[in-house]
Simulated assay, not measured.
Amino acid sequence: MSDQVSAAGAPPKNGSERASDTFVTYVLDLCKVKKTQSDLRTGLGLPVERCNYLHRYLVPRLPERMHPDARRAHYAVAALIAARPRATREADTHAAGSRQPKPGWYQRANLGASLAEAVNNQVIKPGSAEGDLHLMARQSSGAIHPRLPALTRHLLTAGVAVDWAVLLEDLAWWNRDRDRIATRWLEAYFRTNAPEPEQDPAAGSSRLTEEN
């Protein structure tokens, strides 16, 4: 693959794990060492050129020829994983011992679905979640990256899971396929957080009159 878009975006072969999942598993294993986790965390919200402590762990893992957006997505997700709250890290360690089969790719939760779950759990107000999604839908990945550390930590602290592999692929493709990915996020949000339809009072009274 010339000028690779993303090691994460490569489709799985012969039923093997997606490259994005393999990368996430690699980073989760790295984070078992406290010093390594601390080094990876220094890249939070930063461009690759300022992630000096991450290179030793990620450069050997990533293709030499890689699109800059994809490279930054890998560095960003590695830092976000390293910055998980303690409770989330402990839960992930426990879950790693009994891994369940993952659902189909398009059934997995993207950031829109995670925000909807936070709204359903009354962790984030609907207006704030929708505002964040609509704002990100208009921005480049360069503007989104600095927002992710606070947003994902807020979700994780409240017990809302983030699918790192899905986020990795979405970020890797964002600048070249933003409308499609943003639409997926919004669709997932409104599908997961579908409000009850408002009933027209006049229509309700009309039905009661007919029944009587």
Rank of each mutant, 00 (worst) to 15 (best):
N110T: 05
I81R: 01
D200H: 14
A137F: 03
A118T: 07
H134Y: 12
D92W: 03
G43W: 05
P85S: 09
A143Y: 15
K34N: 14
L167S: 00
S20E: 07
R18M: 03
A73T: 06
P47A: 08
T42V: 10
A172G: 10
Q122I: 05
A188H: 00
E187S: 10
R184M: 07
A96S: 15
T152W: 03
S205Q: 09
T192F: 02
P63M: 07
A165L: 00
R50P: 07
K13E: 13
L168W: 04
N52C: 11
N121G: 04
A19S: 12
S98Q: 13
A76L: 15
N14T: 06
E211W: 11
L208F: 03
E210K: 01
A118E: 06
N175S: 02
L133E: 15
A165Q: 07
Q107C: 12
V27D: 03
Q37A: 13
A10I: 08
I144T: 04
L54K: 03
A83Y: 08
L156E: 06
N212L: 02
L44T: 10
G127S: 13
T209D: 13
S6C: 08
A76C: 15
L54G: 10
D29H: 09
R180T: 02
K34Q: 14
R61L: 08
A116N: 08
P146K: 02
